[in-house]
């Protein structure tokens, strides 16, 4: 039986190896054919033109913009909510709020996307102008979607800080708020940063909800009321009909996304280890 358990333990290693193998084997040759430089920094994505051009720079920039927007909106609210839940919330209220955060995490991304299309897109269109399918809309929606991740990780980081820190600050005459913000939060810094990084990973990887509200135009723009396309939406939009080099270029897009995620994961586990130590 030990052998069976051992083999089961190997499956996750096997899965990672297979995923790397199939993505890289199908994606790297395309990068070679297009030219790594033209692929990563090319400004034009026009796979159906002749000659076709496969530049994913607009999408890399798109993913970064949308993620940055999500961080600007989601991180402050998320951390402050975590502070509220860990340090300000009456016990009775906590019993309602905790399942609510779990529910926020459990709502499927299509439902978020649908909500975005029906509520956020008209809201942005009416209040800020443009078509509503924009960086701003996607940022708001993603900001909401990463809230539970940030709240969950930050809350447990805040709770892990020894009570003596807080009591010490109180004893020195600080108010409850000051004690929490100037002694507990700095002590929980690396745990909270880990939560933010996990949230960034979620935001970069989110596909369906973003696709429904971001407009998906392949262009470089920094106007937050205009639409653009992210790495994830580029894959999901065109994979259905892509063939040959186009298809391989999309897989190469996934390779770029995968490498982004690996870097983020690495940062996350480094920080988590440090916050444990």
């Amino acid at each position: 039986m030990k052998g069976v358990f051992f083999i089961a333990a190997l499956t996750s290693i096997l899965a990672v190896l297979l995923i790397c193998l199939f993505l890289f084997a199908n994606g790297i040759p395309a990068m070679g054919k297009i030219g790594v430089f033209d692929f990563l920094l090319g400004q034009k994505w026009a796979p159906t033109d002749s000659p076709a051009s496969y530049g994913i720079f607009p999408m890399i920039l798109g993913s970064i913009y949308v993620t940055a927007g999500a961080i600007i909106i989601g991180v402050p609210i998320g951390i402050l909510t975590a502070v509220f839940m860990a340090r300000f919330c009456p016990k009775g209220l906590y019993k309602i709020l905790k399942p609510a955060v779990d529910l926020l995490a459990g709502i499927p991304s299509v439902v978020y996307g649908f909500f975005g299309v029906m509520v956020l897109v008209p809201f942005v269109r009416d209040n800020f102008g443009g078509t509503g399918l924009s960086i701003l809309t996607a940022s708001i929606l993603l900001g909401i979607m990463i809230l539970p991740t940030i709240i969950g990780v930050s809350e447990s980081a805040i709770r892990a800080v020894p009570e003596s820190y807080y009591e010490g600050a109180l004893a020195l005459g600080a108010t409850h708020e000051r004690s929490v913000f100037f002694t507990i939060l700095p002590a929980a810094k690396s745990g909270i940063t880990a939560g933010v990084i996990l949230g960034i990973g979620r935001a970069i990887g989110e596909t369906m909800a973003v696709m429904m509200v971001v407009g998906n135009q392949t262009r470089v723009t920094s106007d937050i009321l205009k639409g653009l396309r992210t790495l994830t939406t580029n894959i999901v939009m065109e994979m259905g009909y892509a063939a040959d080099l186009h298809r391989e270029a999309l897989i190469a897009t996934a390779v770029v996304l995968f490498i982004f995620i690996l870097i983020i994961n690495l940062l996350f586990s480094l920080l988590k280890r440090r916050s444990k130590a």
């Binding site: 290693i13 899965a15 995923i19 970069i204 990887g205 894959i235 999309l250 996304l257």
Partner: peptide, 17 residues
């Protein structure tokens, strides 16, 4: 480490794989 990696991979990458 591999399990942590797996849990961070976006679902669209799983879909492609």
């Amino acid at each position: 480490v591999t399990a942590e990696t797996l849990s961070g991979i976006p679902s669209i990458v799983y879909g492609l794989f």
